[in-house]
Amino acid sequence: MPLLDIRNLSIEFDSPHGRIRAVDRVNLSLNPGEILGLVGESGSGKSLVAKAIMGILTDRWTVSADRLRYNGVDLLALSASERRKLMGREIAMVFQEPSSSLDPNDTVGHQFNESLPMDECDVPFYRRKKWRDEQIKGLLHKVGIRDHKRVLKSYPHELSEGLCQKVLIAMTIAYKPRLLIADEPTTVIEAGAQDQIFKLFKKLNQLNDVSILLITHDLEHVENWTQTITVMYCGQTVESGITKDIFKQPFHPYTMALLQSMPHFDEMLNHKSQLTTLSGCVPSLQHLPIGCRLGPRCPRAHRKCVETPVMEKSRGHYFSCHFPLTENIE
C-alpha cells in the first residue's frame, strides 16, 4: 500500500472571473521508503499540492479529492486536532526560503525547544533542560551542524540560508516523521550547501527510512536523487514513473521539452546557439486552456487535445497524452 496516495486532487479558488481550478485532478502515489520528485515550472501548483497535504492552505482555497490518504488515513476528513497529531509527528515539511520559515524575533534555540517531542521525554522535570539540550545537540549534529552553541544562540537573520535549512530539517526530524515533504528546499541556497542538503535527505531516507516528496524544478537534482518522479504542468499531472525510464524515454511532449531544456555540454553546443524551449509561456490562471493545458504550446497538438486526456499506463509508467511520443502520428 502506498504511504501517500492521492487520486484526482483538485484545488480551486474563487476569483472575480469565477472559480479557477489551480490544480486539476492531480495523481500522486508515494511508496514507503521512496524518494519521489515532483517536478514542474514555477506556478504549476507543486507547492499547493504540498500545502494541501499538510492542510495549511488558507481559507480561500477549496480542496477536493477522490482520495487523499496518508497510510490509509483520509487527510481531508481529519479534524484540526487530529490533523495536528499527524503533522510534525508523521508528516513533516521543509519550506523554500528557510530563513523566513523561522520566527525572526526569536532565537533558533528557543524555537527548537518548541518542536521537541516532549511526550517522549521520560526524565523528571528537574532534568528536562539537560535532556532538551542533549536532544537538540544530537539532532543538530545529525544534520551536520558542528558549532551548535553558536547556532542556537543566533537569530535567524544571523545564519546563512543553508544553515537555516539544516536547522529546520533538524527540527522536523525531531519527531522522526515517516514522510518528509521538501518544497524546493534548495532554491535560495548557495551551490555548495545544496549538495549537503540532498546528501542529508539521502541519509535520512536510507538510515531512518523516511519517505521523501521532493518538490523541485531542478531536473539535475531529480535525476540524481530520486527514484520516481511525477511531472506537473499548469496544475495537471502529465507523466509519472521511474526516474530512469522517464529520462530515457519520456512519453509526454512536455517532459521531452523539459529534458531538452537541460543543456548537455558533451553534445557540442554551438557558440551562442539557442537552447531549445517550448514556444510561448505558461498561461495565467485567468486564461487556462480547456482540455490538455499544454495544448496551445504543444508541438504535437491536435483537435482531440481539447478533451482532457485520461491517465494511461504502460509498464509502470503513467502519462496523460492522446499522442504520446512513442506513437507516430501521420
Binding site: K51, I56, R84, G88, A92, M93, F95, D103, E114, M171
Partner: peptide, 17 residues
C-alpha cells in the same frame, strides 16, 4: 500569513501557541 507561521503550523504546534 508569514512563512514561519505556516512552518510552525506544519510542525503541529497548537494554534494558540
Amino acid at each position: 500569513n508569514a512563512n514561519y507561521i505556516k512552518a510552525a503550523q506544519a510542525r503541529g504546534q497548537h494554534p494558540l501557541s
